[in-house]
Design a protein around this nucleic acid. Structure first.
Length: 110
DNA sequence: TGAATGACGTACT
DNA sequence: CAGTACGCCATTC
């Protein structure tokens, strides 16, 4: 049982700060945390986010695609959550993703 | 102990 | 422009 919680918690905190109606990308988080692992470990942290009160549904890949929707227990759970927050999703993709993109390096920086 | 995998991203062909 | 390959590194078998 490796309690790498420290590393994951860092990711969780960033995701938790994502405002409703906004989305962020794995790469953005990884880059903000200077994770050399790139973006893969960010997704891995999400996998462990179950029970951590982490709105992982606000985290999408660089294309704004709901890559992990299938991991929410349903192919429409993630989409429903986003739509419920005001994020329009079409074909598993965030509408106006580029505009709704919440970059920690931009919002949390400085 | 080593190999395989993985909610991604970037680079190259 | 599209497709393929590689990297990155922790977790799992």
């Amino acid at each position: 049982m490796a309690e790498q919680r420290d590393y994951f918690e860092d990711v969780y905190q960033v995701v938790r700060q994502v405002p409703s109606g906004r989305v962020t990308t794995y790469g953005a988080i990884a880059r903000y945390l200077s994770l050399r692992a790139g973006a893969r470990m960010v997704g891995w942290a999400m996998n462990s986010s179950h029970g951590h009160n982490v709105p992982a549904h606000r985290v999408v890949n660089s294309q704004g695609i709901l890559s992990g929707k299938h991991f929410f227990g349903g192919p429409t759970i993630m989409q429903q959550l986003l739509e419920d927050e005001g994020v329009q999703v079409t074909d598993d993709r965030v509408v106006d993703f580029k505009t709704k993109l919440w970059d920690p390096s931009e919002e949390l920086a400085m």
